[in-house]
């Protein structure tokens, strides 16, 4: 009975989706809004990566809210799981198997590469595929490798918390500077645009990107560490 109703629901949705796919014709050109963005981001903001330009400047408020959501998640996971790590960690007889020596050594070789690549992705957010969120996720996956391969390491939650808060405060501060010196909140024109396509260019976008990367990396590391038991 329950299986039949579930099947019916899934089949109905499948029919709706089939109708959508069947009636969809591939677009030949972008919409007017997208054309505007594609033309304006390189000229006005000086950022070759259009997606990063949209995310950090035109939809800066949205990104700020997103970072706030991540902060709330870190706090919420901390509230839900934080109180019990002292009791389960010291439980005797359930010592997890140590990973083999090869994995530990390999992780020690790979970790600097991963963190370096994370920094590269963050700093190249306005030039190439990447940006604050993506680079922060790469840094956090480096933290995850650290926990998988070297389980004895402890994360310094206080330091990460201070770093994250500082990055958030500076981010909002840059937004307010944009309000004072340029056209509006989170406007990236407070710094000179520089030469198109170089590392130091595109106004405040690299600065905001780096702050986002630090903040997201710290938050995701804290979240991943909370899930370790």
């Amino acid at each position: 009975m329950k299986a039949a109703s579930s099947l019916l629901a899934v089949l109905l949705f499948g029919a709706v989706f089939a109708g959508i796919v069947g009636g969809y014709g591939e677009r030949e050109s972008v919409s007017a809004l997208a054309e505007q963005y594609l033309a304006m981001v390189p000229r006005e903001l000086g950022a070759p990566n259009v997606v990063t330009g949209i995310l950090i400047t035109y939809r800066g408020f949205d990104t700020l809210g997103e970072v706030a959501v991540l902060f709330m998640v870190a706090a919420g996971v901390g509230v839900l799981l934080g109180g019990k790590d002292t009791t389960t960690a010291s439980e005797p007889g359930r010592e997890p198997r140590r990973p083999s020596e090869l994995v530990g050594n390999g992780a020690e070789i790979t970790l600097p590469l991963i963190f370096l690549f994370g920094a590269y992705v963050i700093k190249n957010g306005h030039l190439s595929a990447g940006g604050g969120f993506q680079g922060g996720a790469v840094v956090a996956s480096g933290t995850m490798l650290l926990m998988l391969a070297l389980p004895a390491t402890k994360l310094n939650h206080g330091f990460l918390g201070v770093t994250e808060s500082l990055a958030g405060v500076v981010y909002v501060g840059i937004g307010i500077l944009g309000l004072v010196f340029a056209a509006g909140f989170l406007d990236s024109h407070i710094l000179p645009l520089g030469e198109f396509g170089t590392l130091i260019s595109a106004g405040a976008i690299p600065v905001i990107s780096a702050l986002l990367g630090v903040k997201v990396g710290a938050e995701l590391s804290v979240i991943i560490d909370r899930f370790r038991n």
């Binding site: 994995v103 790979t110 690549f117 992705v121 190439s128 595929a129 790469v138 996956s141 490798l145 998988l148």
Partner: peptide, 28 residues
Amino acid sequence: RFVYIDVALVYGLLSFLAVLAIARFLEK
């Protein structure tokens, strides 16, 4: 396009971590 090479690197990184995590999970 040169920029797609970055995607390959991220892809390899994520798969490596996923396989390590699954191996650790299965080992228990």
